[in-house]
Amino acid sequence: MSVEDNKGVNRKVHWQSHQSSNAEMPENTLAAILDAWELGGIPEVDIRQTMDGVIIGMHDETPKRTTSAPAADQDRLISECTFEQVQTWDAGVKFSAKYRGERVPSLEEVLVILTRHPERELYLDYKQVDLEKLAELVQQYGVGKQIIFCHKDHENCKAIKRLAPEIRTMLWIPDGETARSFEAARASGFEALDIIQLHLKDAEGDEGWRYKLGKDYLQHVQEQLTEAGLELEVLPFYFDQSSMFRLLDIGIRRFAVDEPRVFVATLNDYDFDKASFI
């Protein structure tokens, strides 16, 4: 729910801790998940399934980049590994010795925490899982209203909505596909969608607006989504105070960020009372 003051200014900002960047914490670990919640954000877990059917947090198809998996396992597909194997890998030490001992979490571990904190939310970025199994697991723990399912394929968003209508869905649209994918979603009546995320890549040169997607276009998209009862989320891959303030000025109130602490510090400096809404 939005929180508006008597001037109609929406001061509530939702933000996703984008896990695949490895910027401030070892991605897809309980340490990163808990840290995002403690900062006031919503963590993201990239979900894959092991050979024995356990849904885990892992961005890549293989463990090579993010874990201490031995040479024999480094290039093995997660779908070819058992959960017992996965649990022998250290998921924190490659990021920093400070996080030595962090393991690849099962989704079930994270959902157990959600049951104890009904005020918390969680993004699940679909990589490779059985959607029926995912829906059953979420419903088993009764946390569907706390889940935001994310994928770039609209059909997967429709599928999870059929299986678990209480789960919110977010269609993320990568740079280069914005107009086509957004128009296709709009033509469907934004079927089964709750949020649309647009990726903001830097433009070449500096003409007073940092991103390839123009301010007017973002405002247009936001107006259409608001009218349809949806939310706009943006993922600015890079931002400074000026560019973030301009996004906030437009009225955008949902973000995905690679550097949560930098984002929170920037947000704390934003004066909602002087928002220009240009």
Rank of each mutant, 00 (worst) to 15 (best):
K7Y: 10
R11S: 15
H14L: 11
Q19N: 01
S20T: 13
N22K: 04
P26S: 07
E27D: 11
A31T: 14
I33Y: 15
W37R: 02
G40E: 02
D46V: 12
R48H: 08
Q49H: 13
Q49M: 13
G57P: 02
D60W: 03
S68N: 11
Q74H: 03
R76T: 15
C81S: 04
E84D: 14
V86K: 01
V86E: 05
V93T: 11
R103G: 08
S106L: 06
S106R: 06
E109A: 09
R116I: 09
R116T: 09
E119S: 13
E121K: 06
Y123F: 11
L124N: 05
Q128S: 15
E132L: 05
L134Q: 01
V138K: 00
G144E: 04
G144F: 03
G144Y: 04
K152L: 12
K152D: 11
D153S: 11
C157H: 01
I160Q: 01
K161Q: 03
T169M: 09
M170D: 01
S181V: 08
A185N: 07
L193D: 08
D194G: 08
E204T: 11
D206F: 07
G208T: 07
K215E: 14
P236S: 05
F239R: 01
S243F: 04
M244G: 02
R261D: 15
V262L: 09
A265L: 03
T266V: 05
D273I: 02
K274W: 06
F277A: 11
